[in-house]
Design a protein around this nucleic acid. Structure first.
Lengths: 140, 140
DNA sequence: GTGCCACTTCAAGTCGACTTGAAGTCAAGG
DNA sequence: CCTTGACTTCAAGTCGACTTGAAGTGGCAC
């Protein structure tokens, strides 16, 4: 498969694939002239990478999840930790969503006159809310 | 109040406060010599900004939520939309968390041999998961 | 054989939200 | 009055994940 084929099948731009290769996240099995040739297995690898990104891992973290031989060596403790982090994030986002919903429906003339909204503001100010940055879907 | 006082009370570094002023998010009521003098009201404003950031609004979006006179003019529809976005994000993160938890506990020798994990990988690859970036808590 | 253009490399740019550094000002304590 | 150092400005740097642009190469249809 050439890079364009991989790009089509994976949904990633070719530039991102080159970038990933440079970062050591994927590997071309060879070259046809200058051009990279990929094994179809790279698609599963890219899917794994996409999963990691969605879960909030950085590219560097993901790179560390592959053994030198290329096989994934994903630490179960790490996964459990991420799961707990996600749990915390979800709780915070849930509180935020509820607050926003209330504020959107609240009949108070100004938001600052709504006790629920003010409570939410207080929470945000105190840092009780405030998430860790998640990563982006590459929808263009 | 001088900038250091505001920094202490709000938890924001002074550099961020200057940055916010430059962006038009906050305003100093005057100067004592060169030094900015802030009205205590700026603290509520900063809390509001923190709330907006936690909810996933960009600084530019937040800037647009204040009328020229400085009073918040927060569009209820916008809040409702963000709430729905958060809902979607929460669902995705929930799926991700469940998948991670399973993978962390799964007895399969390699993750790729676990059907649940493979399903999760497929989801991520298809873009069914993949969130919009949330903003950061300023914990140093 | 030859021309096209999809591929290549490498450096630099982008975006958001700030931070950092250098150089300068000045309010206030002694 | 004078020093001190907290404040000021402005430009540039940072971070992550890529994208973009310029300049070059070579596979393949004709």
């Amino acid at each position: 498969m050439d890079i364009t084929e991989v790009a089509k099948r994976s949904g990633m731009p070719a530039s991102a694939l080159r970038f990933y290769e440079e970062k050591g996240l994927i590997r071309a099995v060879g070259r046809r002239g200058l051009r990279r040739v990929f094994d179809p297995g790279v698609l599963e690898r890219l899917a794994l990478i996409a999963l990691g990104r969605s879960a909030g891992f950085s590219l560097d973290e993901i790179a560390r999840m592959f053994a030198p031989d290329g096989r994934p060596k994903i630490d179960r403790k790490l996964l459990a930790r991420k799961a707990r982090e996600l749990d915390a994030t979800i709780l915070k986002l849930g509180a935020m969503r509820d607050g926003l919903k209330h504020a959107a429906a609240c009949p108070a003339p100004s938001h600052m006159e709504c006790p629920t909204f003010r409570r939410l503001v207080g929470l945000a100010a105190s840092g009780a809310i405030g998430d860790r940055g998640k990563k982006a879907a590459r929808r263009k």
